[in-house]
Design a protein around this nucleic acid. Structure first.
Length: 735
DNA sequence: GAGCTGTTCTTTTTT
DNA sequence: AGAACAGCTC
């Protein structure tokens, strides 16, 4: 799972007080890793090559500081980018030191969760215009709020569908005092209104968490701060994981948190920057090094991949010296050419079955691709061949309408100033209604002031039975989802009030806030406060629930999602010019595509197989192999039947098989088309009856929606059309 | 509104 | 290359 090969072994209980330097774990580190662990420069960045034991060093560093340098864990901030990484660090620490309490690792977590923690405890949020009771906004919520303000103030804002992106991307320009947005609209008038509204409704966006905490830390430093005892709430050490992924906001937060005295230790790999399109400068690693005047150490030794893979990886290395390996086993890198994605999937499935029969576990195998859309064919074929697979799809509470609504109810209950959310609860077409409103307003005084509350009480208090429509067919399921959620929440909140002595409202607020940051994932993340067990439909049998071992599955994912993982056998499909690398416009993007390919190939420990197709279908991609394939030294390649397209060893393409393949092809294409057509339809599932309509030009169609002004209908061959009722162009037919 | 022409962006995803 | 939008006219 981790970046690492150096495993952490449980320390002997009797050696609890032993210095880390004298442990077996420390002795197993290589000289570079040791140097990084022991370094105590005011600032140090570790340029960690892929697979070089980055997290092991980070864990070692924490243990060294804690055990040898006697720095309490509470005085460290350990910052990561993802919850997964944060969880992994704490988990690995617990393996070494099982008695770690949650309070000790308050400063461990994502940038956002650590910032939230500080805003809720030591930082004076009132000075920035919020109160301690603020809540955290969902990322889409800010866009909705912005749209509301645009309408309310009659602003002219272009590209509303891309508003979220625009708000992020153009913020810096606005801050820098630029006159107008790049589209010459009112976007820049929106920023101050939005900021004001968020304060009024007492809630912060993700970006606000970092922005406001940075600002308050700076004010603090300028004021009494440092003089009064070195900053009681400032960490002595700041450790950062994957520092190359920082953006400007996170860099600012780091600088402010560091203040005058904290030491900073950051690990990262400039060769693995694959998210710069998301707002990360692509040279953050070196920027941070210079900004902090940091010493640079390196971890050059890769423990993961065999010599062939590393030789290829070195061809794609952009920064630093060659990666050094530890294993000399030669194993050629396989390159295959197939006719099209369907044939590729078929052969892949066959190959995986063969590997499995020879004893390879499914879980040791992964298939990577450039675009999400490429997974559909694999899913179909693997499903048919009975290969168990896991598609990394995140399912969140937001995907479950009733829970999505319930969280909104709770959000308003713990923050009655949130009028936007109150309106959303009220207007919900399925669960909404007047009843909930006064309950939410009086929640704090009627229920929230108590130390403990049960799920049943909440269910009754909010009148959920009526809201969920007891007579509807989905009631039983909704009720069980809601009760399950409330029970988990109450358990967590009651525990919290008991230990902190706070009230229920405060605990629920904390619960929904951390749920927001945790993405309210419903998959494997056991640590998620809002965790609900919902299993993905994935075409395989469903065992392994409730603690039993999860069955082994082949992992299917995008190249991006593969970062940080490792597998015995890796297949990268669609290594075609225009797909890998994806057609790009500029040099920077091209460089990033190269890093992405580098990340992909370096996930493999032993076997790497790359394939491209002559007839890519879909995406306007050429039938040529990627030029990345030409960068691989010929002597390392196993090209199979050169020139010719792969032909199956057994059961070559009989007529029967061919038609089978064609049927499948059509099926998958239909599926993709259906998905595309259904996706943009936003909401309003329950359609009681189908009404037919007639139009003089489009003929007969189906009524889609209707209000007092407009009528929307769908016509075969024409798609959806909207009409003004007043024109009387469409006639609703009797059923 | 619909319907036309011209322009911009298109993928990857975490908090 | 095709979708999705802006801005125009009717």
């Amino acid at each position: 799972m981790s970046e690492e090969t150096g495993e952490t072994r449980r320390m002997n209980g009797s050696h609890q007080l032993e210095e880390y330097q004298h442990t077996e774990e420390f002795r197993r580190l290589n000289e570079y890793q040791k140097a990084a662990v022991l370094d105590e420069s005011p600032a140090c960045v570790v340029n960690a090559n892929v697979g070089s034991g980055k997290t092991t060093v980070l864990i070692g560093k924490i243990m060294y500081l804690h055990l040898d340098r006697k720095i309490p864990l509470e005085n460290m901030a350990v910052l990561t980018f993802t919850n997964k990484a944060a969880d992994e660090i704490v988990e690995r620490l617990r393996k070494i030191k099982p008695d770690i309490t949650p309070a000790q690792v308050q400063g461990f977590g994502t940038f956002h969760s650590v910032a939230l923690g500080m805003l809720k405890s030591t930082l004076p949020v009132e000075e920035a215009g919020w109160t301690k009771e603020f809540t955290v906004m969902d990322p889409d919520e800010e866009t909705d709020l912005a749209l509301g303000l645009i309408a309310e103030h009659g602003l002219k804002v272009k590209y509303k569908n891309r508003l979220k992106k625009r708000l992020e991307q153009e913020y810096q320009n606005w801050l820098a005092g630029k006159e107008e947005s790049r589209y010459r609209d009112d976007l820049f008038h929106l920023y101050p209104l939005l900021a004001e509204e968020k304060k009024k409704q007492n809630k912060m966006s993700f970006a606000d968490l970092l922005r406001v905490s940075t600002e308050l830390l700076q004010i603090k430093a300028e004021g009494a701060g440092e003089a009064a005892g070195g900053g009681a709430d400032r960490p002595a050490w700041i450790l950062v994981d994957e520092v190359q992924d920082s953006d400007a906001l996170q860099l600012g937060f780091l600088e402010a948190l560091r203040g005058e005295s904290a030491k900073i230790f950051a690990v990262g790999d400039p060769n693995q920057v694959i998210y710069s399109w998301r707002g990360t400068g692509d040279n953050m690693f070196f920027l941070i090094k210079h900004r902090f005047g940091a010493k640079e150490l390196t971890l050059p030794v890769n423990y993961r991949s065999n010599a062939s893979i590393l030789t290829v990886a070195n061809r794609f290395l952009q920064f630093g010296n060659k990666i050094r390996g530890t294993r000399n086993v030669e194993h050629r890198i396989v390159v295959r050419n197939y006719y099209d994605p369907f044939q590729e999937a078929e052969y892949l499935a066959e190959k995986i079955q063969t590997l499995h029969r020879k004893g390879k576990r499914y879980g040791e195998i992964a298939v990577f691709y450039r675009l999400q859309s490429q997974s559909a064919i694999l899913e179909k074929v693997f499903g048919r061949q009975g290969i168990p697979y896991d598609l990394s799809v995140k399912k969140t509470l937001k995907d479950i309408p009733v829970l999505n609504w319930l969280v909104k109810v709770l959000r308003v209950s713990v923050n009655p100033s949130d009028t936007q959310m109150a309106a959303a609860v009220l207007k919900d077409p399925v669960y909404g209604g007047e009843d909930a409103v006064c309950r939410m307003e009086r929640f704090s005084e009627e229920i929230g002031n108590r130390p403990a509350v049960s799920a049943g009480e909440l269910f009754t208090y909010f009148g959920l039975r009526a809201a969920l429509h007891p007579s509807s067919s989905g009631y039983a399921e909704d009720e069980s989802l809601v009760m399950d959620f409330l029970e988990k929440m109450c358990a967590s909140c009651n525990k919290e009030t008991q230990s902190s002595g706070g009230n229920f409202t405060g605990a629920v607020r904390e619960f929904v806030n951390s749920s927001a940051l945790y993405g309210m994932k419903t998959d494997a993340g056991e640590k998620a406060p809002g965790d609900i067990s919902v299993r993905e439909e994935d075409g395989t049998e469903h065992d392994g629930r409730d603690g039993t071992a999860v069955p082994e599955r082949v992992k299917l994912m995008t190249l991006h999602a593969s970062k940080g993982l490792e597998f015995d056998t890796v297949f990268i499909i669609g290594v075609n010019q225009g797909l890998i690398p994806l057609r790009c416009k500029n040099f920077e993007q091209e460089e990033e595509e190269r890093r992405l390919f580098f990340v992909g190939i370096t996930r493999a420990e032993n076997n790497l197989e790359l394939s491209w197709y002559t007839n890519p279908g879909e995406h306007g991609v050429t039938g040529e192999p990627s030029r990345y394939l030409r960068m691989i030294p010929e002597q390392l390649l196993d090209r199979g039947n050169t020139g010719k397209q792969e032909s199956a060893g057994s059961g070559a393409d009989t007529a029967e098989r061919k038609s089978d393949l064609q049927k499948l092809r059509r099926q998958v294409q239909d599926q993709i088309r259906l998905k595309r057509e259904n996706a943009p339809k936003p909401e309003n599932a329950p359609k009681p009856e189908v009404l037919r309509v007639r139009h003089r030009r489009y003929g007969e169609g189906i009524l889609v929606s209707e209000d007092d002004m407009m009528i929307e209908a769908e016509f075969e061959g024409y798609g959806r059309k909207q009409f003004l009722k007043a024109f009387g162009e469409v006639e609703i037919l009797d059923s």
